[in-house]
Design a protein around this nucleic acid. Structure first.
Lengths: 142, 142
DNA sequence: CCCGGGGTTAGACAAAGTCCAAGCGGTTGG
DNA sequence: CCAACCGCTTGGACTTTGTCTAACCCCGGG
């Protein structure tokens, strides 16, 4: 649902709106995430960013992702026991998670309703609701 | 909701029903999980089991948890980026997760309804639905 | 006896992520 | 022009969670 390619300039502006000074590396990292809109792990991002020629260190990738997270530019997905995925889509939505292949697919939140939840534990406030539908490849495909 | 203390004998029987030969270590690990019914990480289990005097190795704890998992005796909770929690409650239910303290609380599934989910991705079958309500401590208590 | 197999084990190892002290580069003020 | 500063980046050491491997122990048959 995204027609024109994302420019680095547009990304820089986006970072600024989130009170992040746009450096070269940060733009590359944002580019990796927003260009394709996929869920990526830190490792994958590191690989993508360094794929062409630009050099960015592991530390910077982790620092930057944490910063993006704090500033609400991306979301964190805890779904795989081995690594965290980062989600460039911050609109409320949920996920299918294939426990075998590890594949993640978005579920738009509009039509989804969660009902009958009990009151929150005392002394806590809500921070969000995640629905994860675990799936596995059909063992008897047609 | 659990009145008499769990005996090791009862646990041994339970393991057998799940096609697990009950060894000393396995019973101790099951005991740690089922006695208190809490969500525990592998590390915590290792510490609990070795707390008194019994010696059990890290490898055995991991082996055993994996075995319990395969045999459907416990469930795995992927909710904390740093470690996996194991849930002795295999009845369908959901969780509150305090993102600050890391505390996990059960939500019985009976009254919870999730509606409006789209069809599963092609070629996959459902494996379960997890609802995680993220909470944080109330910043302005009273 | 000897053998075989399931269970256990210590310790080496792997992978994700954190930490730290140093370096870099651009801005500001004298 | 220089110096001091400050935010950002960096390599590499380190930590933590979990896996792997090869040896070992114990027990039950033949």
């Amino acid at each position: 649902m995204q027609f024109q390619p994302i420019t680095r300039e547009a990304l820089a502006e986006r970072l600024r709106r989130h009170r992040i000074t746009p450096t070269h590396q940060r733009i590359e990292i944002a580019y990796a995430l927003f260009e394709r809109g996929e869920h990526l792990s830190a490792d994958q991002i590191l690989a993508l960013v360094n794929a062409r020629h630009a050099e960015t260190s592991k530390a910077t990738v982790y620092n930057t992702l944490k910063l993006f997270l704090e500033r609400g530019l991306i979301r964190e997905l805890i779904v795989d026991p081995d690594r965290v995925f980062y989600d460039p889509n911050t609109a409320p939505h949920h996920h299918f998670y294939d426990v075998v292949t590890g594949e993640l697919t978005d579920i738009p939140a509009e039509r989804v309703r969660v009902e009958g939840l009990p009151p929150l534990p005392a002394g806590t406030v809500a921070d969000g609701v995640d629905v994860i539908v675990r799936t596995r490849p059909d063992p008897l495909p047609r």
